[in-house]
């Protein structure tokens, strides 16, 4: 059971820059209804780095990821791509930016056209990567392989529609796409939240392997701090739109400095420590 593992703890400080932010702020609404979803955050994500952004519901994780994707305009600050100010002001420039970046969204059903059959999702990926003219057997072989990475059987998916899959199966399908697309940057928002522990282990190991092979930068958004600890090089802790702490996974999780990080860690159920419910007050909000 306890096969040793090469822990991802490379030092990325001198690695080439991939995505950076300088004083990025996003405000929704005005006056009374104003929400500062992302509040003056700065960061450097490097090439090949596995970054996790951890925070509770409403802390601004999804908002930040949409800004990074260029789906949402930030109110203030600057996003840099490979060290240069990112320019996605025209459709052409935006498409160029999107070429190397892929996203897995929080709700697997929302991001996907429910009238498309499952096999066409995977086929599109192959076509997008220039495999349009490959013989069909080769395509099927590639799709079968991608599915097996995420514990899915391709043969059982053909001719199905998304609503015929469970949430966990749908999430796995979204990750299978990544194996075909091999993007330079992957932004994944709670991509395994509905997947059982065993399949999740398979998927996480495969993602790490893919990262090592192609040097993909992975930005992984999650509220599962145990998961972030296992998989990332670097962890960013987000509270109320701010990064309250960041650093190497080992340092942040085993030796947290911010009170919020400490609380997050002490709050999750563990197996060698009793879960303390005595401090929970039901009457709040």
């Amino acid at each position: 059971m306890s096969e040793d593992r090469i822990v991802p703890s490379k030092d990325f400080t001198n690695a080439p820059l991939c995505l950076s932010g300088r004083h990025v702020t996003k405000v929704f609404g005005f006056g009374d209804k104003k929400t500062i979803a992302v509040n003056d955050v700065s960061f450097d994500f490097h090439e090949g780095e596995f970054v996790s952004i951890v925070g509770e519901s409403g802390s601004g994780k999804t908002t930040l990821s949409k800004i990074l994707l260029g789906l949402l305009n930030h109110t203030e600050g600057e996003i840099l791509f490979q060290g240069q100010p990112r320019d996605i002001s025209t459709g052409k420039k935006r498409n160029a930016y999107w070429k190397g970046i892929q996203a897995i969204f929080q709700d697997p059903f929302s991001s996907y056209n429910s009238f498309h059959k499952i096999d066409s999702v995977l086929l599109d990926c192959i076509n997008m990567r220039g495999g349009k003219n490959l013989p069909m057997e080769k395509k099927v072989e590639m799709m079968t392989e991608a599915c097996s990475f995420v514990n899915l059987k391709f043969a059982e998916l053909t001719n199905k529609y998304p609503f015929e899959l469970s949430g966990g199966q749908m999430q796995r399908l979204m990750i299978a796409r990544i194996f075909l697309l091999k993007p330079k940057i992957l932004l994944a928002d709670e991509p395994t939240s509905m997947v059982d522990a065993c399949s999740r282990a398979t998927i996480l190991d495969m993602l790490l392997q893919l990262r090592d092979e192609i040097g993909m930068t992975i930005i992984f958004i999650t509220h599962d701090i145990g998961l972030a600890y296992y998989i990332s090089d670097t962890v960013y802790i987000m509270e109320h739109g701010k990064f309250v702490e960041y650093g190497k996974a080992d340092e942040v999780i085993l030796n947290p400095k911010a009170a919020y990080t400490k609380r997050l860690i002490s709050d999750v159920p563990k197996i060698h420590e009793e879960w303390d419910l005595s401090t929970v007050e039901l009457a709040t909000e």
Partner: peptide, 14 residues
Amino acid sequence: LVPEEGTRGHKLTA
């Protein structure tokens, strides 16, 4: 998966 010391050094059973 838990944020406990040592869990990072072991491969999960897949």
